[in-house]
Design a binder for these strands. Structure first.
Lengths: 347, 347
DNA sequence: TTGAAAGCGGTACCAA
DNA sequence: TTGGTACCGCTTTCAA
């Protein structure tokens, strides 16, 4: 049972393809096709449940109603949430989304972008590996609408939707300070994603403001590949410093998870010995003893904004670039010490 | 800078479209185009970096190289992992994947399937809401290759890849029995997904075999919408039964999460008072005190098998239906009591 | 108010 | 070896 085409309808009804097409696209009245003809067409289409071939329509109209989504990894709960939101919002605008994981690889990302373009996607949403300025510049040149999310290239002017890393981390550090912590370490990743830089910046400046900067930096950065293996050394090293540390701020949720694993193994008490805050949440942070405080990123909003921005760009040709940094929110739980008491005072 | 087309190349080089097309598709030798001509074409294409318009190719060949993926919710870590695997494997075969979340809604799912078909996807992978036998039957009739994952319709013969729920739960229950538990409750969801039925079956039969069936059932089922609100009542009711309970088996990871939240609130000790096992994992199960035992579902393999099966179906027209139930594996941690000791004995 | 016809960018068959 | 050409299914302009 091969699918019914416009041709078929046209022939069966003895009405020209163009009329059928117009009517089926709801432009019957506009073009003033007689009610009667319209009825016949609609009726027939419904009866034989005709649906357009979007490949054909796409080719003809030069659009695909497809949005490409490229992210490092959808298994990551952060990106998974964003993807959900993007898909949902894209659908509202009539777009479907094709997604691919780049695995943080520049080459992979490059190929994916190309493959999406071959598919004539109308626009692209990318959480880039951030090693790929070539392609990003290429995209700009090609005039393909796209918006970067989460990861950006400061030196390239593009649309971008991310979170306010600086403020987010600042609120976390301040919370720790409020709880009386003075030796606050910051554990991050090496490669140097802009987002992580900003978090680092936020950490440093907040300590500064509160006069808590130390001569010896309490910042530690590990390589993505050896998080699990290096975390124990780093934490041991930190707690064994002459003055030790009394709080740890993790730059991402999976670092926090690794850190917690280590702390548990070392038998270090949270928050008595060290308080903990994670930038980014994990679904089980409230089940851990003590529950883990975290900086919550507004993933739903992020997805929505990204789609809104993209759609706006796809409609108008006026390419003004927009940058949005969404506010995070601090979820204070016991892991940062004095949680509830302080929390209440704050409000 | 509008994109370069075959036409353009053909005209610029004064070589016919067909030759150009053939060469560019690597069939130059096969058709015996002279080395020289081939070189010229390839050279020109590379230089002006030509890439096919897959919309056009698709229309012409009647294929889109697109696989549609419909799942209840990609934010769910289980589906997120599967999606990752599916996308990765699909790409190996040269397919891109369009995904959509059905939100467990029959209507939504229905629309999505239709919309994917309009897009001429070559095949579909669906984790169905399982309320949608109509569409599934329709798909069969339409001869669209598709494979169901995780959720199936026992009364419809289709391709299916899921896990061995019966065995999975049996191993969990047996582990609890080994640990000396006798009053083992089973907490599940109401709607009655086949997978959950199978888990229930596994639970019941395992208890039976070990002579542990009780007069009064220890099975409790809650509605998806009120998990958080009903869980406390259910657990309180269970522990206050005349003979109480000494173990809880959760039918899914998020039920386990809700259960843990409740147990924590009630101050019930794990595993001393009740032991816990969850069917399905969560990334932080090892961070909880005590670490939570769980039945691990082979998501990577599941995704791969689904794609393999689908591709096989898309290639051959011979539609034999296959059902695969992948083995789960039991990850024994402290929450089920006696973990390590018993575990070692088992090996 | 309706129809004819020219694309959209490729593919593939048949001739030359 | 290469070129011509008829589609694929739909949109859209122009003429009738």
């Amino acid at each position: 049972m091969s699918k019914l085409t416009l041709q078929d309808i046209s022939r069966s009804l003895n009405i020209s393809k163009s009329t059928v097409s117009l009517v089926l696209n709801g432009r019957g009245d506009e073009i003033r096709v007689s009610k009667e003809t319209q009825e016949r067409i609609l009726e027939f289409a419904r009866e034989h449940n005709y649906t357009v071939n979007r490949l054909a329509r796409g080719l003809s109209r030069g659009i695909s109603d497809l949005i490409g989504l490229i992210i490092p990894n959808i298994s990551d709960s952060f990106y998974a949430r964003i993807a959900t939101s993007i898909e949902k919002n894209a659908r509202l605008y009539g777009y479907n989304v094709v997604f691919s994981s780049s695995g943080e690889s520049k080459d992979q990302e490059s190929e994916l972008i190309q493959s999406m373009l071959d598919r004539q996607v109308d626009g692209l949403i990318i959480a880039s590996s951030q090693k790929n300025d070539e392609d990003i510049r290429g995209l700009k040149r090609s005039n393909t609408p796209f918006v970067l999310i989460d990861r950006r290239y400061p030196e390239i002017e593009t649309n971008f939707v991310g979170v306010d890393n600086f403020d987010g981390i600042a609120s976390a550090v301040e919370q720790l300070i409020l709880a009386g912590r003075k030796r606050i370490a910051f554990i991050s990743l090496k490669p140097g994603l802009v987002a992580l830089q900003e978090r680092l910046e936020g950490y440093i400046q907040t300590l500064d403001i509160h006069g808590l900067s130390e001569d010896q930096s309490l910042v530690r950065e590990l390589a993505y590949e050896n998080i699990e293996s290096d975390m124990p050394h780093i934490i041991e090293e930190l707690v064994h410093l002459p003055k030790g540390v009394d709080a740890l701020v993790f730059a991402t949720h999976f670092l926090a998870a690794a850190g917690l694993r280590t702390l548990k193994k070392l038998g270090i008490k949270i928050p008595e010995e060290v308080a903990i805050i994670s930038f980014g949440q994990m679904s089980a942070f409230d089940l851990i003893e003590p529950p883990i405080s975290s900086v919550i990123q507004p993933t739903d909003e992020l997805g929505k904004k990204a789609v809104d921005l993209l759609v706006q760009n796809m409609k108008n040709e006026n390419h003004g670039f927009e940058n949005r940094h969404l506010k995070t929110c601090l979820l204070v739980r016991e892991s940062c010490g004095l949680a509830s008491a302080v929390n209440k005072v704050l409000k």
